[in-house]
Amino acid sequence: MERVPILKLGDILIVSIQIDLDDQSVLTLQEDLAETVVSRGARGVIIDITAVEIVDSFIGRMLSTIAAMTRMLDAETVVVGMRPAVAITLVELGLSLGGVRTALNLEKGVVMLEHARSAEG
């Protein structure tokens, strides 16, 4: 099993998925992220899937779970970098990733999180 590194930038955690994740690695990443959000006091999480060639129902569910889980831990999750072919396939598969915020790239994801925070005051 491979582990996905979690980087910290200010109060944002950045996860860039660069490997073909097996299901166990997906579950480990979910747990690692929940723990890191709390231990580092993160307010935002960015999951970069630029390098991810497919998102099947298991990985799709992971994205929804992480978004819901971090929200409960007072952090907002943004998924960035989805490939067009992945978006087309996900919709056809029947997964709309409800509740998951997305941005086109890392930069826009950071801006989105900053806006969300300044709106809170």
């Binding site: 299901d23 099947d56 298991f58 067009p84």
Partner: peptide, 17 residues
């Protein structure tokens, strides 16, 4: 095509699981 590759790989992943 890239889209069709993505679709068949995604289907393969679901069915293998």
């Amino acid at each position: 095509s890239l889209v069709d590759q993505t679709k068949i790989v995604t289907a393969a992943s679901e069915l293998a699981r």
